[in-house]
């Protein structure tokens, strides 16, 4: 089996320091909508300058490099145990090189492990066997500020008048955006999962965030709701950093899971503007492509 530690280290560096082009484009579009001289426009100008500087200097876009969340899609024959240990080695090295902040804290003692390792959930690695010969690793770095404003609703919700249908989903998502205000580093991107159990719903809400900004939802009904939610969230006027302004949300991603008859969860994972997600593909001959 190939040792991919150095290639995974490059994936971590790229993810932490170089914002994906589709996200950077969305930030520029947001900038165009803000009033000249406004605090909102100033915030976006600073954000874009920071994105460019981080890329040029290979330094983290945001100091909160979050929980490293890996999704590994491997062809038959790869050892997931070896892949996990290579991912861990890459994460330790990335921490030494200041691409990642030491972020793994023992919840009981408060001690920071110093190297971003800690138990089987830190870093988080999901494995899935796939057909074919190529191995793909996706990485998302999601900081704590936006993670803290993530929320799960159980429908019906009488306070919001939200029933067990897409109209109800719309209401709770708007409520979540209002509750978040600027705390999640607006302008954000919403990952929404409808259904599932409490755990799977949270996972799926994050998985939805791997879809690119310009990639439409395969379900047209959900696609229409995504467009509407982004527009209505922006009517709230919370704006970049919560300063007030035109762009509160740059996009919405919705996915639906089967649920139990008794349960109807809607889970919202709020992603900050520093929407760090990258992908590496390892071909059969060992060559690696990053995107």
């Amino acid at each position: 089996m190939l040792d991919l530690t150095q290639q995974i280290l490059e994936l971590v560096r790229l993810t932490s320091t170089d914002l994906p082009p589709d996200v950077e484009k969305a930030l520029h579009q947001a900038l165009d909508h803000e009033q000249p001289g406004s605090a909102a426009r100033g915030a976006l100008e600073t954000i874009i300058k920071n994105v460019e500087l981080s890329r040029a200097n290979s330094t983290p876009i945001c100091q909160d490099t979050g929980t490293p969340i890996f999704y590994v899609y491997y062809p038959a024959g790869w050892s997931t145990r070896q892949l996990r240990s290579q991912i861990e080695a890459a994460v330790v090295e990335a921490t030494k090189k200041s691409y990642l902040r030491p972020n793994s804290v023992d919840s009981l003692t408060g001690k920071n492990s110093g190297n971003n390792l800690g138990g089987s959930y830190f870093p988080t690695v999901h494995f899935e066997e796939v057909d074919g010969n190529t191995l793909t690793i996706e990485l998302m770095l999601k900081g704590g500020g936006c993670e803290n404003v993530g929320i799960q609703y159980s429908l019906p919700n009488s306070q919001l008048g939200a029933g067990r249908d897409l109209a109800g989903v719309r209401k709770v998502v708007l409520d979540a955006v209002h509750k978040a205000q600027g705390q999640g580093c607006a302008p954000g991107i919403l990952g929404v999962a409808i259904g599932g159990d409490r755990g799977s719903s949270y996972y799926a809400s994050k998985e939805a965030l791997f879809r690119k900004m310009d990639e439409p939802n395969s379900n047209p009904e959900l696609g229409a709701l995504e467009t509407r939610l982004t527009e209505e969230a922006n009517q709230l006027g919370i704006g970049p950093m919560g300063f007030g302004g035109e762009t509160t949300v740059m996009g919405t991603r919705i996915t639906a899971l089967n649920r139990l008859p008794a349960s109807f969860f809607v889970t919202i994972s709020y992603m900050c503007w520093a929407y760090r997600r990258r992908k590496m593909t390892v071909f059969r001959d060992g060559t690696v492509k990053y995107e």
Binding site: T46, K49, N57, P60, I61, C62, G145, C185, M241
Partner: peptide, 13 residues
């Protein structure tokens, strides 16, 4: 005083 969230490289300078 509100600093710009996520503007980490820029502020570090």
């Amino acid at each position: 005083l509100h600093a710009i969230g996520g503007a980490a490289s820029l502020i570090a300078q």
